[in-house]
Amino acid sequence: MNLKPLYSAVALSTLFAASASAAELEISLVNLTHGNHFTPVLVAAHDTDTQLFNAGDMASPALQKMAEGGDIADLDMAVADAGGVSIANLAGGLMAPGQKTTMMEFDTQTMTHLSVVAMVLPTNDAFIGLNSWMIPTTPGTYTVNINAYDAGTEANDEIINGGGMPGVPGIPAAPGGDGGSNATGVMDASGNDKVHVHPGVLGDTDAAGGMSDLDSRIHRWLNPVARLTVTVK
């Protein structure tokens, strides 16, 4: 796949368009899950050399911090350091199941790619992840499905214990107030320590014990878990 000529063609047309060098986008996101919240959503526009994560690679410490505790500050700073632009906290806080954000204006300047991440709660280290989606240059409305990834940094024991700091086992919280307690913990036999597609949570129907503090009737999901709508003006 030879993308080089395409890039130069884009660059040329951008030059000729002079004042239109900045890409004006409108974006909105919908949480497609039944019972999972998203922590503050980071939307980043960046160049081809920047990635927030890549499936098959080890998670960066900044990604781990986001996936285990929902803190996007380090990732946001990394985007800025790489010359990118971002919307930190798209929904203005936690994003509830079924919630749709209002259309948000986003001036992506000369950045060519879009990435989106947020932690999925209640989980150990699941996150919604869009990696380097090429921003179209043709005006129109585009729909992008987003899957859930596992950061590969923490065992999925499904115990809600407030543990949200990187490296601390457990799940920080169930924002829907629908988590259980006193679980013995799921034995996670996965040996994959790279970022990978999340296998989904197990859960059980025993809120006061059992293997998991998650509820299998509420907290399970199938991909896609979120949908991004991008309008290129």
């Binding site: 899950t33 299998s216 999901w221 199938l222």
Partner: peptide, 14 residues
């Protein structure tokens, strides 16, 4: 919303 899949008795929904 996107269906979370069925659980089934075999997977713990008694």
């Amino acid at each position: 919303y996107i269906h979370p899949g069925v659980i089934s008795a075999d997977d713990g929904l008694a």
